[in-house]
C-alpha cells in the first residue's frame, strides 16, 4: 500500500469535513478497499473511517414500515437484526463473503463501491430502496449507474439505506466458489403495486432490472410465468468463470428459483 493518513471521526458532519481534503477517501469495513490498496490500485491521501460513527450503525423500522439500515452497519448485524422484518434481505446479508468478512464489511461500503458482482446492489434495486446520503436521498433506480459507478458525488457518504418491505421476496445467488461473489444473483420482490426483479453479477453495466420478467410476474407470480423469457447474452460479462451466454442462461434459472423460494 502507498502511505496515507488515517482519521476516524465520530459524526457524519466531521466525516464530511474530513473528506474535503484532496484525494481523501471514505473507508467502510475495508473488505474491498484494503485489498485494492494492497494492489496499489488506489492512492488516497487519507482514509476517513466511517466505523466510529454511531449514528450510522444498526437496523431500525421507520413509521411507514420500511427497514432502515445505517450505512456503516456490518453484514452480520443486518443478517441478525433484519431477520424478523425483512427475512430475504437478512438471508442475502448472511451469505455475503464469509463470517469474518461479514463482521467488517458494511452495506454503505458495498453500495458505494457497486461491484458488478456484489449482492447488496440487487437487494437495493430489487426493493426500490432509497439511498440516503449526508446531502440527499437517491432512489435506487437513479443510484446505480454502471459497473463501479453510482450517483454519489465526490466525498458523499451513504449514511442510511431504506428498504420498503415487500409481501414476498427471495434472493438466489449462483456463487463463484473462490470469491463467493455472485456469478449471477437475482433478487425478486413482490409489492402490492408490482414485482421487481434485480440481477447482479451478470451484466457489464452492473446491476439491472429485468423488466420482461417483472411484467410477467406482476400478472402471475409463479415460476411458470417466466416460461419462454430470456435475457440476451450481449452485454453479459464473459470471463474465465463463465461466458456471457452461460450467465444469460443463469439469469433465467436463478429468477425461477427466486420466485419458487419466495413462495
Amino acid at each position: 500500500m502507498y502511505a496515507f493518513d488515517f482519521e476516524k471521526p465520530g459524526s457524519i458532519a466531521d466525516a464530511v469535513a474530513a473528506l474535503k481534503d484532496e484525494d481523501a477517501q471514505a473507508l467502510g469495513g475495508g473488505q474491498t478497499l484494503i485489498p485494492t490498496l494492497k494492489q496499489r490500485l488506489a492512492m488516497p491521501s487519507k482514509l476517513v473511517s466511517l466505523t466510529g460513527i454511531s449514528e450510522m450503525q444498526g437496523v431500525c423500522k421507520a413509521d411507514d414500515g420500511a427497514v432502515c439500515i445505517g450505512g456503516a452497519t456490518p453484514h452480520a448485524v443486518v443478517a441478525a437484526e433484519a431477520a424478523g422484518d425483512y427475512p430475504a434481505l437478512a438471508e442475502l446479508a448472511a451469505h455475503i463473503g464469509d463470517p469474518a468478512v461479514r463482521n467488517r464489511g458494511t452495506i454503505g461500503g458495498s453500495l458505494a463501491n457497486n461491484d458488478p458482482a456484489a449482492c447488496y446492489p440487487a437487494a437495493a434495486l430489487g426493493s426500490g430502496a432509497t439511498i440516503v446520503t449526508n446531502a440527499r436521498e437517491i432512489a435506487a433506480d437513479d443510484y446505480f449507474q454502471g459497473m463501479f459507478t453510482t450517483a454519489l458525488d465526490e466525498g458523499e457518504i451513504v449514511t442510511e439505506v431504506r428498504f420498503p418491505v415487500p409481501e414476498k421476496a427471495a434472493y438466489m445467488k449462483f456463487e463463484q466458489p473462490a470469491s463467493r461473489f455472485a456469478l449471477v444473483g437475482v433478487f425478486v420482490a413482490k409489492y402490492a403495486d408490482g414485482v421487481r426483479v434485480a440481477v447482479t453479477g451478470a451484466s457489464e453495466s452492473g446491476v439491472f432490472r429485468w423488466s420482461e420478467a417483472e411484467a410477467a410476474l406482476s400478472s402471475n407470480f409463479s415460476a411458470g410465468a417466466l416460461d419462454g423469457l430470456s435475457v440476451p447474452a450481449d452485454g453479459m460479462i464473459s470471463d474465465l468463470h463463465g461466458s456471457g451466454a452461460y450467465r444469460a442462461h443463469l439469469v433465467a434459472v436463478m429468477t425461477r428459483r427466486a420466485v419458487d423460494a419466495a413462495g
Binding site: 475495508g30 484494503i34 473511517s49
Partner: peptide, 15 residues
Amino acid sequence: GKAVKACTMLAAEAD
C-alpha cells in the same frame, strides 16, 4: 468478540 481477518483491517481501526 468478533472474528475478523487481521490482514484486512488497519491497526488504527483496532485502537
